[in-house]
Simulated scan of single mutants.
Amino acid sequence: MKAIVMTESGAPDVLQLQDVPQPKIKNPTEVLIKLKAAGINPVDTKIRTRGTFYPQQMPAILGCDGAGIVEAVGAEVEKFKPGDEVYYCAGGLGKPDTGNYAEYTVVEAHLLTHKPKSLTFAEAASAPLVLITAWEALYDRARLQAGQKALIHAGAGGVGHVAIQLAKLKGAEVATTVSNQDKARLARQFGADYPIIYTQTDFVKAALDWTDSQGVDVGFDTVGGKTFFETCPAIKVYGDLVTILEPDYALGTLKVARNRNLRISFELMLSPALMGLRRALEYQAEILAQCATWIDEGKLKIHLSQTFPLAEAAQAHQQIESGSTTGKIALLIDN
């Protein structure tokens, strides 16, 4: 089969289209999937640059997100059958016979969810990681409730645009940071009540003005760097701050967070896969099932801004690293 193979860490050109053996079902709980699309996430570019989580098992096929058609199932698989359309977040971290930048992959059945009927394969493939990340951050870490106010950073981005929608589905009001008017309009389409153009306005002052100087109930940092620390004064006393990135303490301190008694949480949706936490992985598949229902009901949308053919995975990585994209990017797999 054709696959994009990473033989070493480095620049995008380490991603090369190659012929590799097609993976086979080895366990009775596995499913062979004929991939139609693969989502691309910033974590893919980080793994490519820094190396995989399993460097001793190179070469690797990247791509955590995929969507495709069930080709065959193991003897103990009951929920899926050949011909079913599925989407999921699985593999792509460096283990052999995993990854979705390929024509076929094998996935454990408990990681799979039926694809939203209303989405294309490319749209579906771009959705899982960001949906799970936003859900766990807002619903599980921050315990967002109806009537609360949330500040979501980068509302036109991959995680941000679905986080706005999940917050609105919970009944919260949403302010979000964006870099320009076009992205502000896009954020409003996703349901944002108050887009803040951070290049023109101090987002902390804007958030405090929006909340009568109290601060928001929940801050969701999808940017990292100084933004994590700068968000602290925008959150109310005893509020929540969730980040998907590791704070760089050379850029700030948690003094304001401590003074305001903030509850700080970290969100890394890859932890269950890296730690082999079966129940947590099943829960993530349940999240995708609920999101699929909302998508097909028209309550949740996925913004796919650009697609590339499988052979142009390196160019897709360059696009992600440019920092100018909105929504998501996916690879189209023609097999």
Rank of each mutant, 00 (worst) to 15 (best):
A146Y: 00
E136A: 00
P128L: 00
G147N: 03
L62A: 13
V86R: 15
A60G: 09
L169S: 13
E123A: 05
Y88I: 02
P96R: 06
G83V: 05
V77G: 12
G155R: 03
G63Q: 08
K81N: 13
I47P: 10
A127L: 12
N100F: 05
T98V: 04
A142I: 06
V107H: 01
D84H: 06
Y101E: 10
Q56G: 06
A67H: 11
V162Y: 09
I61N: 01
V162M: 06
L131D: 11
Y87L: 01
F121V: 06
Y54W: 11
C89V: 05
A102K: 08
Q165V: 02
A172S: 07
A146V: 02
T49Y: 14
D44Y: 06
L166N: 09
Q145K: 15
A125I: 02
P116G: 05
K115I: 00
E173S: 14
K95H: 12
K170M: 12
Y101D: 10
A167R: 12
G158T: 01
L129P: 13
R48C: 08
A134G: 08
H161N: 14
F121E: 05
T120P: 09
E108L: 11
V73W: 12
R141Q: 14
V106K: 04
E78L: 14
T113A: 15
E71I: 02
L111V: 00
A122P: 09
Y101C: 13
F121Y: 03
G155A: 03
L93A: 04
V106S: 07
Q56S: 13
Q165R: 07
R141P: 04
E103Y: 02
E108I: 00
V73G: 03
G147R: 03
Q148W: 11
G51S: 13
D140H: 12
A167E: 10
L131I: 14
E76Y: 04
F121M: 08
K81G: 07
A125M: 03
